[in-house]
Amino acid sequence: MEMFLDYLWVFLIGGFICMIGEILIITTNMTSARILVTFVLVGVFLEGIGVFDYISDFAGAGINVPIIGFGASLTKGAISAVESQGLLGVFTGCLTSTAGGIAAAIIFGFIFALIFRSHTKK
């Protein structure tokens, strides 16, 4: 039962965040790049003021899978690197923590671009 509730939270919070994105699209005609930038900045902000981990504790993937999690993880990397390396951490931290995601997107993007060709929309 507890597990079911956990999953329900993930679904509701994740869905709610995505729905906010859709509301932004409908009301402001934002393009997807702008939506993603906005949500990354939200993640950076939440992590910066230190509330992201609290949300993450009960929302799980609901907040980590949306691009907000990506922004938070960038900042988390920067902050922890600053704590261990000082000023150098400002530069090394953020990309270290998200290296996996960015590299995966680049690698898979490259491979699938070699394999597939574009399809016309119907």
Binding site: C18, M19, E22, L36, F39, F70, A104, I106
Partner: peptide
């Protein structure tokens, strides 16, 4: 927004 906001949208925007 349901497919743009998750990390999968980021992947889509690169691929």
């Amino acid at each position: 927004g349901g497919t743009i906001v998750p990390i999968t949208g980021f992947s889509n925007s690169i691929t």
